[in-house]
Amino acid sequence: MVAKRIIPCLDVKDGRTVKGINFLGLREVGDAVELGARYASQGADELVYLDISATVKGRKTFVGLVKAISERIDIPFTVGGGISSLEDAGRMLEAGADKITVNSAALRNPSLVDEIASHFGSQFVVVAIDARKSGDRWMAMSGGGRFATGRELFIWASEVQERGAGEILFTSMDHDGTRQGYPCDVFSELNSLLRIPVIASGGAGSAEDIAAVLSEGKADAALAASIFHYGEITIPELKHFLVSKGIKVRI
């Protein structure tokens, strides 16, 4: 049986990680390559790098960073942020990324998913979906959760699967940043609906939260940023905890 994956997420601006980092002995805390290498050596199963640069110069720096990551990092990594065309995706593949993630660009232009998947394979395309509960429906949001799209989460997730997405990265905007845990019922429903893996993001405050979304929520992977960056729990500690809960992970 394939192991559940633990995926640290690094936000990058102008080539450097931006979130607070609590690793001892890391000389340059903003160095995205070194931080990723540290996570990889601790047992991270994959890495996600999100470019949050808003400038053209920042975006160009990111492509160079992706090359440096691929030279150094020996586990799969996904890159995202600002990928809105087949050409953008191709540049990332060329730079050595294993997968790309698209979010708002896919909502604006759903056929982008088909285009990237048919050119580079479904395994290359992760569709990120941010959603928020509105009444009794979960609705996809764009622009980092700022704009309503009128698309219902489950319908949109099924559509992008049919269009060729290889994985879904789902974040509940109602839980993101709260550190109160994930909406496991929504993850479980997504997992039952889809044939492709689901990565849970947004809301982890503890190892128990991650165990819950991987077991009750049936998610295939959990992505987290702050609990790793601030050193509250290390990846080896988390993985040993998950094993103690009967969850298969790579140790």
């Binding site: 394939v2 192991a3 295939d220």
Partner: peptide, 8 residues
């Protein structure tokens, strides 16, 4: 899930 993707 198919593809078989991840660590085994």
């Amino acid at each position: 899930k198919i593809p078989h993707m991840g660590w085994n």
